[in-house]
Simulated scan of single mutants.
Amino acid sequence: MPMAAEDIEAMIVAAIPDAAVEITDLAGDGDHYAARVTSAAFRGMPRVKQHQAVYAALGGRMGGVLHALQLTTVAPE
């Protein structure tokens, strides 16, 4: 079952409250998304840790309900 972009955004914001999340459906199938997540919580954090924080927010749905997520994480300037 595909996962709605709104659900992805809601889960990320629930775990990272100050996150600004932009979701793009790459294939129109609800399984392949790109996400840009901006959060002050990422400041000083290595990129791999930033991505791990986002994946943790998705609660194990990666590779199951959510097939692919092209992830970009940034700290605001």
Rank of each mutant, 00 (worst) to 15 (best):
A10I: 02
M3C: 04
G44C: 04
F42G: 02
A15F: 10
D29S: 08
A5H: 13
V74T: 14
G30D: 03
M1D: 14
A4V: 05
A19C: 08
A34Y: 11
M3D: 01
D25I: 02
D7T: 14
V74F: 11
V48H: 15
P2F: 09
D29N: 07
V13W: 12
T73H: 07
T72N: 12
Y55S: 06
V13D: 05
E22A: 15
H32G: 05
V65C: 11
A34Q: 05
A41H: 07
A56F: 11
D29I: 00
A68T: 11
G60W: 09
M62C: 03
R43D: 14
I8Y: 09
H51R: 13
R61E: 06
D7S: 11
A75H: 06
I12L: 01
A68E: 10
Q50D: 03
Q70L: 13
L69F: 14
G44A: 12
V37C: 09
P17T: 05
Q50P: 00
M11W: 13
M1C: 13
M11Y: 06
H32V: 04
G30T: 06
A56C: 08
G28N: 05
R61N: 03
A41S: 12
A4S: 13
I16S: 06
T38D: 07
K49M: 08
H67K: 06
D31H: 14
L26H: 02
P2S: 14
D7P: 00
Y55Q: 10
D18Y: 01
M62S: 05
A27G: 04
A41G: 04
Y33R: 08
D7Y: 12
M1K: 15
Y33T: 04
H32S: 09
F42P: 00
